[in-house]
Design a binder for these strands. Structure first.
Lengths: 143, 143
DNA sequence: CTTGCTGCAAACAGTTTGCAGAACT
DNA sequence: AGTTCTGCAAACTGTTTGCAGCAAG
């Protein structure tokens, strides 16, 4: 599955005439090895500790490529940083965000997705993507 | 209803020992007169044209007070600006955001709200607020 | 060899903050 | 009078961009 993703990116790169570079390989490896919702800086620091030469601009630029390639998706939580999560084929999940400990719980709900489709249809709206975030306190933090 | 909101803010201000100032009155007036989802800059420019002396820092500071007072809510859309919308008692709406023309269509759906409550309950999560945004093309823009 | 990619630093946009003076109470 | 609030400008944060050198094809 990690191999598939690499292949996906290589195909994308080929189709766009992009080059395959050491940095892009490294960043892809680290991104794939990462848990959900990395911020650019988190990823950058992780990479830099092993590959000091790398620049943050490259990480920014490369993550945007991953989005274009369909590997990653931008998530804007309320912490002032852009985060990226993995795109899994055919799957969409939403987030419970704990404002106490910053934990993020993912969930999926088909009924909600359907309702969204209905609402969009009612407005003649063509959905490209969506996000649902629920903020509050997780079981541990509601003391 | 606008009067109620002013009263709400005055109560909040009183309870917090905040002062009532010309600027806060002005900003509140303009905020209340505004349509949904003003960005700070939009509001600031509107106010400045009528009250040139006002500073943007004050607008930033005051909008945060409105949030604390329960009059306003931060909305983060994908345009790099923080926007504020009105809090209406007991009402919650979500957004269809057109990436073509930036139109924002609001909708409400009780069933979705219920499903969210269920999901939260299932995770022992205490909801404080939430947001659902659907991105895509509106009827006009889907050519 | 040609062109795209990288790293660096400078530029940017939106927001926050320190401070001296103004304005509430 | 005492303190909070304001306006300004400078500082900050996250992100983008210009450019000279590097590297992939």
């Amino acid at each position: 599955m990690i191999l598939e993703k690499k292949k996906t990116f290589n195909n994308f790169a080929a189709s766009k005439g992009l080059r395959s570079t050491r940095q892009r390989d490294i960043i892809l490896d680290y991104f794939l090895a990462t848990r959900q919702h990395v911020s650019v800086e988190e990823l950058y620091l992780k990479i830099k500790s092993a590959h000091p030469g790398i620049g943050s601009a490259t990480v920014y630029r490369t993550l945007k490529l991953f989005v274009e390639a369909g590997l990653a998706r931008e998530v804007l939580l309320h912490d002032g940083q852009t985060r990226y999560e993995h795109v899994m084929a055919g799957e969409h999940h939403d987030h419970l965000v704990c404002t106490g400990c910053n934990a993020i719980i993912e969930f999926e709900n088909e009924t909600i997705e359907h309702l969204q489709d209905e609402i969009a249809a009612r407005h003649g709206f063509l959905i490209r993507n969506h996000k649902l975030e629920i903020y509050g306190l997780c079981a541990n933090c509601r003391g």
